[in-house]
Design a protein around this nucleic acid. Sequence first.
DNA 1: CCGCCTGTTTAGAATTATTCCAATTACGAC
DNA 2: GTCGTAATTGGAATAATTCTAAACAGGCGG
Lengths: 141, 141
Amino acid sequence: MSAHTIHSDALAQKLADSGLRNTPQREVVYDALLKKRDHPTADEVFARVKTLLPGISLATVYNCLETLVQCDLVRAVNFERAPTRYCPNLIPHAHFHDEHSGATHDIELPSSLLDKIKAILPAGYNADAVEITFRGKLPAR
Amino acid sequence: MSAHTIHSDALAQKLADSGLRNTPQREVVYDALLKKRDHPTADEVFARVKTLLPGISLATVYNCLETLVQCDLVRAVNFERAPTRYCPNLIPHAHFHDEHSGATHDIELPSSLLDKIKAILPAGYNADAVEITFRGKLPAR
DNA sequence: CCGCCTGTTTAGAATTATTCCAATTACGAC
DNA sequence: GTCGTAATTGGAATAATTCTAAACAGGCGG
């Protein structure tokens, strides 16, 4: 196991599965998502990885995030009128968006409930993904 | 009951409740959403209302949609990497986004299930709204 | 009835997020 | 090694949305 990246094995594996190459850029982007799980935007990821890979470009960060989403290591989450945020949590879960702080929290989603939710779809509607987002204000602390 | 607008009473009522004025622009925008319930984007609404109110501006369409969302007559729906879409269906429901056609369909959501979904939130998390979005490909017909 | 006050609309400029493009660089296979 | 393809880069381009400042409209007190 390599020490300088988190889960780089999983990354290498998934990339290989999709016939893609592993690159330092993809590693640092994925690492950044794993290290601080606050659903950062592409810009935020860019800022974080620049310290490690000063030459990286924003376009590359977008490319890497896109790649990670494609090989099922990362989920893209959208909020109304806000830039896309990225989440490396692979366990099925919902999101709670706190309108006070703008922060996003993962909410555990029992698979039994997920099954019930998928069951409301009419015949012929096959969902590749379900996104459940709560919006509300957390009591200020 | 006025003949030239659909549900203009409900609109006038809700606007009054929020201390806002009724305007021809707000009426035609709301009517457009009610008349063709295909979750149009702001641009699409703009195109539709221009035939009725040729002088209306895109900024006004955005303003009106925002106003309608604020007084709970319309929901804004977001899809990854796509412009916001608007939905005048007030009954709780989920959305299915067909990646073939780009179309969005309302999916009935039993209130009992909605309650179960809200129940997964930890104490202190109070959701003002829940958004459930399925993503998938409908068999081409 | 007049003029004011506030809310609304308008056109266009500005901003923001994201994608595109063309050129360079880096692997990996042979 | 070199060749082909994939990946990265910086900058330009696009798309959606918001902002801004000015014009407008409508209800209300006088």
